[in-house]
Design a binder for these strands. Structure first.
Length: 499
RNA sequence: GGGGAUAUCGUCUAGAGGUUAGGACGAAGGAUUUUCAGUCCUUAAACCGGGGUUCGAUUCCCCGUAUCCCUACCA
């Protein structure tokens, strides 16, 4: 039987990195085994605030970004649709009825108030919380009475009262659960929507799912899951509970950890291959060698469920950054330039849409900073000084000015440089360096003592790419303008040397 | 309170009875050099505790401890 796996997100907001990692594992198994990967939208929670219809777009954008486009889903369709659970309501109702008819489920008329009160009492008395199964043992008359009264009801699973249920988990092995420790789970809510348990079991069966790869937070309730499958008399898919991703405080990764939404990472400029590689490695390893940087085809080749670790992993932002930087440096510069432009537009550094001249300038300037980028969005700070109109002392870093624009030879240096640079027939990196070395020689100071003040005069900062690449990229006009401005304003107000 | 899972450097992990316990991120130091970054080299850094099993346990078993998850008409 070919492998069929699914990613089953619910639109409660933007998907979470852990959620996408699970999607990746599913996708990888399908690609590895030549099977099918499908996506199903689990939108059965209609609670206002928890149901975010737009979330579906975030889910799609995230999958597309990672390149894990499903073979069947709500967009492309497929033979076992619909792939949106809210459009499958009659199916769930039908299967719930079947369970009632076979005695594996029953209608419960208890009100939320009663349930809440019961829970509070249980908690107060230190008892395990759970439904007391009152409606499970209603007589025919009582049941008829409730129906006649038109009381709202839910359908609950009639969990076996004794015995055990065994969960065969691919990663954890067999887990034996006492049935009486499990609640009579609600399968169908009073609004007619199914809960996760019913919808998931029914859909997985109807959709021919062979492997259920999901977060470990489902392990505790897997006995209910298996019980429902057993109640239908179906064969259970292989269960794979993957460990959760934790925040730096070792708690389940959530919004309060800050950056956990996948789209945020895209916005901040993470490359798909970096995110993919990093997420895969967070809980999976090849097991054979010490390779960490892996292109997706290699990951597919080496992927196996057995390589997934059994313990939770803390999300390491630093390592992700490093890996992204690595992939940025590895990329064709043209690609990075293209991805950087929107950030420059957004920051107002270039017009919207950019002019050809601006693009040409960006193409010259961005490659110089590529090796310093960890997130693409950093491009704004990195190349800002190339685009901004620097007019000393406006836009100049104070520390940089204090450290390097107070040197005694500054005036002479600037004068010589302005002369030398102006005289350059070709504005080349080599030519600029030649002139500058000559200036240092004439001044009788070390090369570095010319380089640093020049950098500050031309860029307003102490750090950046090599000086001559910088001046070359800046161009003759900008360079001379900046140097002249520094020189002129120096006349007005000499800078006291410090440090 | 009940149930379940897990436990190797700070972090991600390799290891599957005998290893100098390996790699990566991060950290520290050095080299390159015009700064930063990058690149290269070096260093520090770990088997939760206690019992077993065994000639020998990081590795297998049990207990404890810790952590995480579940305990909703949420997924």
């Amino acid at each position: 039987m070919p492998v069929r796996v699914r990613y089953a997100p619910s639109p409660t907001g933007s998907p979470h990195v852990g959620n996408l990692r699970t999607a990746i594992y599913n996708w990888l198994l399908a690609r590895k085994e030549g099977g099918e990967f499908l996506a199903r939208l689990e939108d059965t929670d209609r609670t206002p605030g928890r149901y975010v219809p737009e979330g579906i777009w975030d889910i799609e954008d995230s999958m597309r970004f990672l390149g894990i486009v499903p073979d069947e889903w709500w967009v492309s369709g497929g033979s076992v649709g619909p792939y949106i659970q809210s459009e499958r309501l009659p199916i769930y109702k039908e299967y719930a009825e079947k369970l009632i008819a076979s005695g594996h489920a029953y209608r419960c008329y208890c009100t939320r108030e009663r349930l809440e009160q019961m829970r509070q009492e249980q908690q107060a008395r230190g008892l395990p919380t759970g439904y007391d199964r009152r409606c499970r043992f209603l007589s025919e008359q009582e049941r008829a009475h409730c129906e006649a009264e038109g009381m709202l009801s839910v359908v609950r699973l009639a969990m076996p009262l004794e015995g055990t249920t065994v969960i065969h988990d691919v990663l954890k092995g067999d887990i034996v659960v006492e049935n009486r420790s499990q609640d009579d789970q609600i399968l169908l809510k009073s609004d007619g929507y199914p809960t996760y348990f019913l919808a998931c079991v029914v859909d997985d069966h109807l959709m021919g799912i062979t492997h259920v790869i999901r977060g470990e937070d489902w392990l505790s309730s897997a006995a209910k899951f298996v019980s429902i499958i057993n109640a239908f008399g179906w064969e259970a898919p292989k269960l794979v509970h993957v460990p959760l991703i934790l925040g730096p405080d070792k708690k389940k990764l959530s919004k309060r950890h800050g950056h956990t939404q996948f789209l945020e990472f895209i916005e901040r400029g993470y490359l798909p291959e970096a995110l993919f590689n990093f997420l895969v490695l967070l809980g999976w390893s090849t097991g054979e060698e010490n390779i960490e940087i892996l292109p997706i085809p290699e990951i597919i080749k080496r992927f196996s469920l057995e390589g997934i670790s059994e313990h939770p992993a803390i999300f390491d932002y630093d390592k992700l950054k490093w890996m992204n930087g690595h992939y940025i440096r590895q990329s064709q510069p043209g690609r990075i330039i293209g991805m950087c432009l929107p950030y420059l537009v957004k920051a107002g550094l270039i017009s919207d849409p950019p002019t050809e001249e601006e693009i040409a300038y960006a193409r010259r300037v961005i490659p110089l900073e590529i090796e310093r980028m960890k997130e693409l969005s950093e491009v704004v700070d990195l190349v800002g000084f190339f685009f901004q109109n620097l007019d000393y002392p406006d836009g100049y870093d104070e520390k940089a000015v204090r450290k390097w624009l107070g040197v005694p030879h500054l005036r002479a240096m600037l004068e010589k440089e302005i002369d030398g640079y102006s005289a350059l027939t070709d504005w080349t990196i080599a030519g600029l360096e030649e002139v500058t070395r000559l200036v240092a020689e004439e001044l009788g100071v070390k090369f570095a003592e010319v380089v640093h003040p020049t950098r500050v005069a031309a860029t307003g900062r102490m750090v950046g790419p090599g000086l001559f690449e910088t001046l070359w990229a800046l161009g003759r006009e900008r360079t001379l303008h900046r140097l002249r401005t520094v020189l002129e304003r120096l006349e007005e107000k000499p800078i006291p040397q410090q440090d």
